[in-house]
């Protein structure tokens, strides 16, 4: 892992309205196989991706939210949610599918600065 790069995936888009959240998750899962230092950041509408209880039957679309729970099996455990973005959407930590670390905007900005590669879709 010594020459591993720090990859951060920045998620700022809600699921289903567009495909970005789903296809972004597909990249995350592949990145895990490359033994890199992976973190996921959820900002703005991206925090909606983690909402529990997604029921997609009515829109005849695959519910991909269980995949966030599988991240742990890929040793991806660094999930960061921007606190201000969560609160602005009337959500709390209990609304999320998976355990996350809440960061203030300032802390999130600092974490971004520490990355080698920042990917956003």
């Amino acid at each position: 892992m010594s020459d591993a790069k720090k990859f951060m995936f920045v998620n700022r888009k809600a699921p289903y309205g567009t495909i970005y959240a789903l296809e972004s998750l597909e990249v995350v899962l592949i990145t895990a196989a490359f033994d890199q230092d992976v973190s996921l950041a959820f900002l703005d509408d991206g925090v909606y991706q983690l909402k529990k209880g997604q029921q997609t039957k009515g829109i005849e679309t695959k519910n991909f939210s269980p995949a966030y729970r599988a991240l742990e099996d890929y040793d991806i455990e660094k999930l960061y949610v921007e606190k201000e973005a969560m609160e602005a959407r009337g959500l709390t930590e209990e609304d999320f599918l998976v355990p996350v670390t809440l960061l203030s905007r300032a802390e999130m900005g600092k974490l971004m600065d520490e990355q080698d590669v920042v990917l956003s879709f």
Binding site: K5, E26, V27, F34, Q36
Partner: peptide, 17 residues
């Protein structure tokens, strides 16, 4: 495959989206 994107992130000095 998507691995080619990750590889670009690893091997390139800069990745611009």
């Amino acid at each position: 495959g998507l691995g080619q994107l990750v590889e670009a992130g690893i091997k390139c000095d800069r990745l611009v989206t």
